[in-house]
Design a protein around this nucleic acid. Structure first.
Length: 596
RNA sequence: GGGGUUGUAGCUCAGUUUGGUUAGAGUACUGGCCUGUCACGCCAGGUGCCGCGGGUUCAAGUCCCGUCAACCCCGCCA
């Protein structure tokens, strides 16, 4: 409880200018630190705005001084007194409010604190203890700043979309389960035993339905759920900026979303980016960077040398070529800095992605050298130097494999790893690119059918629709991803608005009419009632905040994240439930951990 | 499901390579002294399931096996 008298007149961080000097002020906050000199005592009082020094003089105010001597870290206090300008020699230049202090004549201890489990001013606390005591973690300026910027960014986004005629519409959290895509979180139905809801992986179908409903411009800051394994940039639940628009082209969507991203950066980080954001085709991205989300903060483009080395005597390459595989080369400027140890580490690194090895050469005195150069004739060597543009001091790193996925995964990540080691991936650089012209389908060799590259509602390029019958693998789609520094911020597509085309796509995806009807019948129905041409996209909001805050872990910008095993260390979620609860739901657990 | 890293005082970490006396430092905490500090200083004090379980050994924080947790990665996920 707090009284009117105790309530703050000013935030602690406000005392940076002389206008408050001589005034009586009241501050509220937490004890950041205390310095007891026996008589004269200082307390740094922190609130969310910063901190200010309180002075307690036993001569002037013996009661307040006596109370101050008992203060400890994180006690909650209200204090009132007169703002003083410090003598020049007493100014603390490292402190925002270091020119001023408050001479306190009355203090109220609103709440004592137990000794905190970690020191809030320690910069590197183990994440486990931070997550367990997240409420203390929030008191640290870094975390407060992450939450503040997250909030500011949603504000910018809402304002921007509002100004551009978007409606914020909510969609259900309890949905129909579909086996495609990620694993669903299931919620049992109490009223219909054996039936389940699924939490949304994204509001995809509903936002298309809203377009059919004539909403025309929709957005939602939507929580999404995917029951898959966690990573540094993946949580079980995460937030999407979800967008859908009617009567638009791909260019319209790319244009307006580019402006939104530019505005977020301008308004919150005072950072200008050049519009339009550059574009790159999926094919170029794969050819040059081996991946559909290229990190363009540095060059080092990949070169295909399968043809170039076809006449070499190096058995590994010969075997790859015989198996109709591919050989890619990463030319590394200044690559002679890579020691044998570095190279061995890189060989181990590409092993993660299935590569059985990594060949390498160095350019020295205009010639190639390494343990395998002898298997390459002078002619082949010359061709290699030409093809890769290798210059003095370059290293050429080679990945060859019969399996093209192994080659691309390995060389793409090798490029990133070398870039990392050479310090080319600075967090201050922002390199945005729209990757466009994705193939509509990817061949699923395991199940001998086509998979949707984006999702089953993505529109093929209009002029390529006839190719669906003849060469579906070559059909491109109106799909687009926005990539920043090698991380996908978001992506979307123009959707199919013609129920016949949609049915045809389902058939190619091996979803027969019957199951299409069961799973998506209401969408197909909706499309048949005058669905407007429409499209949209979704941004991974947590990732955007993470990147803009120059962090490399999404948990830093999510208030209450889960650990890699899906636990909340603070609330100890998940947990057991009572038998009564299960009975109501018609559920029986096969294995039961002791209920807490 | 798999590979790797880490786990020692409330916190941050040293000690583990090469087993050997009573396991250390800083900070936090408790008490005392100190009127200008701001990472205040000085004095004194308590602080340990060395993640857990088993094994080897005369002897284990240290070696071996298993296990748990957190993190990074592969698979998975768009």
């Amino acid at each position: 409880m707090i009284t009117k008298e105790q309530q703050r007149t000013n935030f602690s961080g406000e005392f940076t200018k002389s206008d408050l000097v001589g005034k009586r002020v009241t501050v509220n906050g937490w004890v950041l630190n205390y310095r007891d000199h026996g008589d004269l005592t200082f307390v740094d009082l922190r609130d969310r705005s910063g901190y200010v020094q309180l002075v307690f003089d036993p001569q002037a105010n013996p009661d307040a001084h006596a109370a101050a001597k008992k203060l400890r870290h994180e006690d909650v206090v209200a204090a009132t007194g007169i703002v003083l300008e410090r003598q020049p020699e007493l100014v603390n230049p490292r402190m925002a409010t270091g020119k001023y202090e408050i001479k306190i004549d009355k203090i109220w201890v609103l709440n004592k604190s137990k000794t905190p489990p970690f020191q809030l001013d320690e910069p590197e606390i183990g994440e486990e203890v931070r997550l367990k005591y997240r409420y203390l973690d929030f008191r640290r300026p870094q975390m407060y700043n992450n939450m503040l910027m997250r909030s500011k960014m949603t504000g910018t986004i809402r304002n921007f979309l509002d100004d551009n005629g978007f409606l914020e519409v909510e969609t259900p959290i309890l949905n129909k389960s579909t086996p495609e895509g990620a694993r669903d979180f299931l919620v049992p139905s109490r009223m219909q035993h054996g039936q389940f809801y699924a939490l949304p992986q994204s509001p995809q179908i509903f936002k298309q339905i809203l377009m059919v409903g004539g909403i025309e411009r929709y957005y939602q800051i939507a929580r999404c759920f995917r029951d898959e394994d966690l990573r540094a940039d993946r949580q079980l639940e995460f937030t999407q900026i979800d967008i859908e628009m009617s009567f638009v082209t791909q260019d319209d969507i790319i244009d307006i979303m580019s402006k939104m991203i530019a505005k977020i950066l301008k308004d919150n980080y005072n950072t200008d980016i050049k519009l339009p954001i550059r574009r790159m085709t999926y094919k170029d991205a794969i050819d040059k960077y081996g991946i559909d989300r290229p990190d363009l903060r540095f060059g080092m483009e990949i070169v295909d040398v399968t043809e170039t080395v076809k006449d070499c005597e190096f058995q590994v390459f010969k075997n790859v070529i015989a198996a109709k595989g591919m050989i890619k080369c990463l030319p590394v400027p200044d690559g002679n800095r890579l020691s044998r140890k570095d190279l061995d580490e890189l060989i181990a690194f590409v092993g993660r992605y299935g590569s059985k090895g990594m060949a390498w050469m160095r350019v020295k005195d205009g010639k190639l050298e390494s343990n395998i150069v002898k298997y390459f004739s002078d002619d082949v060597q010359k061709k290699l130097i030409d093809a890769t543009g290798a210059k003095e001091g370059h290293a050429l790193l080679f990945i060859g494999d019969a399996n093209s996925k192994v080659v691309y995964d390995s060389i793409a990540n090798l490029r990133l790893e070398v870039g990392e080691r050479f310090g080319l991936r600075g967090k201050d650089k922002i390199e945005l690119v729209w990757v466009v012209d994705f193939p509509l389908f990817a061949w699923n060799a395991d199940e001998n059918r086509w998979d949707a590259t984006h999702h089953p509602f993505t529109a093929p390029k209009m002029e390529q629709i006839p190719m669906l019958d003849t060469s579906p693998g070559e059909v491109l789609s109106d799909a687009y991803d926005l990539v920043m520094n090698g991380i996908e911020l978001g992506g979307g597509s123009i959707r199919i608005h013609d129920p016949e085309v949609q049915s045809k796509i389902f058939r190619l995806l091996n979803i027969d009419d019957e199951s299409a009807k069961v799973k998506f019948g209401f969408l197909l129905d909706a499309l048949s009632f005058g669905a407007p041409p429409h499209g949209g996209l979704a941004f991974g909001f947590d990732r955007i905040v993470m990147l803009f805050q120059k962090l490399d872990n999404i948990r830093e910008v999510i208030p209450f994240p889960k650990t890699q095993k899906g636990q909340c260390l603070m609330s100890e979620t998940p947990s057991g439930v009572t038998k009564v609860q299960l009975d109501e739901l018609g559920i029986r657990a096969v294995e039961v951990k002791a209920n807490k």
